[in-house]
Design a protein around this nucleic acid. Sequence first.
DNA 1: CCGATAAGTCAACAGCCATTGACATACCGG
DNA 2: CCGGTATGTCAATGGCTGTTGACTTATCGG
Lengths: 193, 193
Amino acid sequence: MDMTDTLLEARPRKRDATATRARILAAAMDRFARLGYETASLREIAAEAGVDVALIGRYFGGKEGLFTEALKASIHPSRLTELDRETYVREVAEAMANGPRDGHADQHGFQFLLRAATSPATAPLLNLAVQERFLGPIRDWLGGDDAEPRARVLAGVIIGFLVERLIRGKALRGRERDVFIERATTILSALVS
Amino acid sequence: MDMTDTLLEARPRKRDATATRARILAAAMDRFARLGYETASLREIAAEAGVDVALIGRYFGGKEGLFTEALKASIHPSRLTELDRETYVREVAEAMANGPRDGHADQHGFQFLLRAATSPATAPLLNLAVQERFLGPIRDWLGGDDAEPRARVLAGVIIGFLVERLIRGKALRGRERDVFIERATTILSALVS
DNA sequence: CCGATAAGTCAACAGCCATTGACATACCGG
DNA sequence: CCGGTATGTCAATGGCTGTTGACTTATCGG
């Protein structure tokens, strides 16, 4: 991304607090989402950001502070709920047919959420964020009677597909992909109506 | 469980390889399911088993060996697939409406699976076990054309319901329960036909 | 009953981790 | 241009981790 890094490694970057803070946060969002809270190390994150470890302590207080901030930044109120239901369903179904590594930033947020949910150190931090930025929007988006339990079921199924994809590891192809998408779409359509 | 431990802590246990091996495995299944691969430490597991850490190395080769064995022991082939489809669907739907503590040992095994899936160190180990003991049986049980992708979707949905129940924490009641079961039944019926 | 061997114990190792405090230096307002 | 302060650097610390090897001791067959 930044030519300064790759080409002129030697020359130090210009000093800019907000910029390096952003660098750190970006690196953290990436590593935390892919590796989980415990496996991602501050040293790696700092290295990826091209920054000294100590600065993380300065700007975010510590690992937990960095994580909570990265969490909030990752689960922005879902862009998806701006879509109409049909395209939403289709997008999700296709995303789930892909491999865990490819895809848009949405997946990124979902993975982050999932990883956070299954780590004992971060689970306590999560409940609030999920309610506010995930379950809430879905519920409002669904609307109508019984929005609450319906949102729960939908959220659960989405997470289920997410886990399935995580286990599967690779993208689906050809006929398998088609059948998967078709059936998943059917399910999701039923859930949002 | 074993009175010898609590009452007569001082007196060493009688030497019995297979018994201590089992103790270690049981403790490992518990800690790994609750804490995940990285957070659970061999020292804690050994302590819970009332055993020296070094024995884990002797009996299981190392942490990874212990984990794979605990994984296999946790995911037993699903009993559910012995049922005909109609009762299967109803049973699953009702089980998912209950709280996470009400059910059988399913939950424990599932937590194990979820934790394993979301840890990068163990995800590779998981694919095989899941194929063998979860996806495989479901696929065979479904049969017919496109059994593979259909099994994947079904597995995704089931996992999703499990996650939802896990997050929800408590059993559903009254109208919410009815709505949930009705919708879940519809979805599952569509998936198995 | 004795001794070989399995079972359990202990301590040390090297590696990684997050965190912290003291230090150096670039920057920018006066 | 100068000096104070925000920014970045460095090194050390203490703690925890999984693993290993040498050690002791119980057990049980001959």
